[in-house]
Computed example of a mutant assay.
Amino acid sequence: MTIPAFPPGKATDTTVVIYSGGMDSYTVLHRALREGLTVHALSFDYGQRHRRELTVATRVCRALGVPHQVVDIRAIHGLIDNSALTDADREMPEGDYSEANLTATVVPNRNMILLSLAIAKAANIGAGRVDYGAHGGDHVLYPDCRPEFVEAMNAAAGIANFDPVQLHAPYLRSTKAEILADGLAMGLDYADTWTCYQGGELACGRCGSCRERLAAFAANGVEDPLSYLQQPCLQRPCLQRPSDAARSQRPDPDAGVA
């Protein structure tokens, strides 16, 4: 989505980045920093099963010296619990991303909720922009990652407050592999991300999110720095590494991190 750097007449160098701790938002965060912007990272605890991503996000922001706020919105859990991502009693679907097998992971209205809160923070601190990591690979499954939704929310953000806020989705039409390629070109270390929907000690390697991540690394010819309980072949030479068993015995790098 090509947009002006900031809304017309908005003299600011500040953006709010919705930062989950995953690959896409990690890349968006660093992209904004590379632009020379003052970045405020915003994460949300909405009762997700994979809240381990919040620990990773906290660690990364602390290392970068980026202001980081984790907003506890678990009070609305009962409004958005009709999803395998927010209901631990539901079976997590496995296999590649497709409408047929991963519809159960759609969290009702999630991005509209998170974007509304991020836009409020931007208006509150005088930031002219909100960045988030919607990308082309999500279009088939998640309505709130599609260009039509982003464009509509961007229009609303322009009139919802006295000062307009611009919604910036730099990878809206990019694949996961293309996002990773951009991040690798920036020299980013994706060991500092969490993708798995299960949120265990090791990534499961079976959920759609893990499989999409592994396919992106395979497409770039690069080894994923995370360790997995299981690595699928993904219809290309197997990604299983002999060192995985040894790596799985390493101490948890997140142990003791608040």
Score class of each variant (00 low, 15 high):
residue 54 L to N: 04
residue 190 Y to P: 08
residue 107 V to H: 08
residue 105 T to F: 01
residue 224 D to K: 13
residue 164 P to H: 07
residue 91 E to V: 15
residue 216 A to T: 02
residue 217 F to L: 07
residue 98 S to Q: 07
residue 186 M to K: 12
residue 250 R to T: 02
residue 79 L to P: 03
residue 48 Q to H: 04
residue 29 L to W: 05
residue 121 K to A: 02
residue 67 P to L: 04
residue 76 I to R: 04
residue 52 R to H: 06
residue 73 I to D: 07
residue 107 V to G: 05
residue 57 A to N: 11
residue 53 E to H: 11
residue 202 L to T: 11
residue 216 A to C: 04
residue 29 L to S: 10
residue 133 G to C: 02
residue 138 D to C: 13
residue 1 M to H: 14
residue 126 G to F: 02
residue 241 R to Q: 15
residue 67 P to S: 06
residue 73 I to V: 11
residue 70 V to N: 05
residue 24 D to V: 06
residue 72 D to Q: 13
residue 58 T to G: 14
residue 153 M to V: 15
residue 75 A to H: 06
residue 12 T to I: 12
residue 11 A to Y: 00
residue 230 Q to R: 07
residue 35 E to F: 05
residue 227 S to E: 13
residue 82 N to Y: 00
residue 13 D to N: 12
residue 133 G to V: 00
residue 106 V to G: 03
residue 62 R to I: 01
residue 225 P to I: 14
residue 224 D to E: 13
residue 132 Y to T: 03
residue 228 Y to N: 11
residue 34 R to A: 15
residue 242 P to N: 00
residue 101 N to Y: 00
residue 27 T to L: 09
residue 202 L to W: 10
residue 224 D to S: 14
residue 118 A to Q: 05
residue 19 Y to S: 02
residue 121 K to Q: 14
residue 177 A to K: 10
residue 81 D to G: 06
residue 253 P to K: 02
residue 246 A to E: 12
residue 170 P to R: 02
residue 137 G to N: 12
residue 22 G to T: 07
residue 137 G to H: 07
residue 142 Y to C: 08
residue 208 G to F: 00
residue 100 A to K: 14
residue 73 I to W: 04
residue 200 G to P: 01
residue 207 C to L: 09
residue 90 R to V: 03
residue 174 S to F: 12
residue 128 G to T: 08
residue 155 A to M: 06
residue 227 S to T: 15
residue 75 A to F: 04
residue 198 Q to Y: 03
residue 245 A to L: 15
residue 147 P to G: 10
residue 9 G to H: 07
residue 91 E to N: 04
residue 172 L to W: 05
residue 218 A to T: 05
residue 178 E to K: 10
residue 46 Y to W: 10
residue 79 L to G: 03
residue 148 E to R: 10
residue 190 Y to F: 15
residue 137 G to P: 11
residue 78 G to M: 11
residue 33 L to K: 06
residue 89 D to G: 15
residue 212 E to M: 15
residue 198 Q to D: 09
residue 221 G to Q: 13
residue 195 T to R: 01
residue 23 M to H: 01
residue 183 G to L: 12
residue 83 S to E: 03
residue 250 R to S: 06
residue 247 R to E: 15
residue 218 A to E: 14
residue 113 I to F: 10
residue 153 M to R: 00
residue 143 P to D: 04
residue 86 T to L: 07
residue 57 A to M: 11
residue 196 C to L: 13
residue 136 G to R: 12
residue 193 T to M: 04
residue 161 N to F: 15
residue 8 P to C: 14
residue 197 Y to S: 05
residue 254 D to Y: 10
residue 93 P to I: 02
residue 98 S to W: 03
residue 56 V to M: 14
residue 26 Y to V: 01
